[in-house]
Design a protein around this nucleic acid. Structure first.
Lengths: 132, 132
DNA sequence: TTATATACGACAAAAATTATCGTATATAAT
DNA sequence: ATTATATACGATAATTTTTGTCGTATATAA
């Protein structure tokens, strides 16, 4: 319960790996997959997604790869999680509001409160703190 | 990502429902299931688990049911979650230490830090705050 | 004795997650 | 030009987790 996904885990590993190179040069999905024993294709897709989100920059062709493109100090963990996995909450009703039970749900308000706490917490942590 | 389970959700609903009765009388799984549109058997199992954990007390037989047995002010949300769902962390490696990759995992330390933050947060909230 | 409630292991269904496949495109090197 | 290697990405498959059900046993009020 309350786990992050492999996708996010792989993304963090990749970012940290790239950052350890001091933003110099490119890193291929292959290199990271091999070093950390991660499925290459899945990692590649995750890097592609981060590329679309502007977190990394992709370079095609042989000798190509990825490099960090954003200022990780300016991306909160909350934003990062939501870029990769969508809305961040303990229960979907926080966003959906489509719950059939909503009329007699008796824990909606307290759940919202916890959600806000959690979102606050992850808003106050930056990607940089994880990958530095 | 970072969702709680239905089991925990149902447990919270049940506790809040029972508490709204001011700890007077018993409440059957059937009653709660009907009122909130919850699968009865699953709810029953959850109540049974809470009974084993001493959170509620069960009474057999017709006119039987459950009532709150513990002081909810003294049970943190972290303890509650862990009673129902086991160790609370964003990644299993926080507890397992059985991860094959552990030797070259580069995000273990920062992940532990986030985990600790999360556990602290839920340690500071009580069940009472949710169900009152 | 009957009806109704809890107790619980085993099993089944459904959903979400994780991983792979196939194909297309870009580009450096030969 | 051709080749080799990298990213791009939709579709699909495999796996795992979550969610729900079944069957049977036990307790107890009426």
């Amino acid at each position: 319960m309350l786990n992050i996904t492999r996708k996010v885990e792989y993304a963090l590993i990749a970012l940290r790996h790239m950052q350890s190179k001091n933003d110099i040069g490119l890193t291929s999905a292959k290199e990271i997959a091999a070093q950390y024993g991660i499925p290459k294709q899945l990692l590649a897709k995750t890097l592609q997604q981060m590329s679309r989100e502007g977190i990394v920059k992709a370079v095609h062709g042989p000798t190509g790869g990825y490099k960090i493109a954003a200022n990780l100090k300016k991306i909160s963990l909350k934003d990062f999680f939501e870029k990769l996995e969508g809305p961040l909450g303990m229960m979907d009703c926080y966003f959906d509001s489509e719950c059939v039970q909503i009329s007699n749900c008796n824990i909606r308000v307290p759940i919202q409160r916890i959600n806000n706490n959690m979102r606050d917490m992850f808003s106050q942590m930056t990607l940089q703190e994880i990958t530095q």
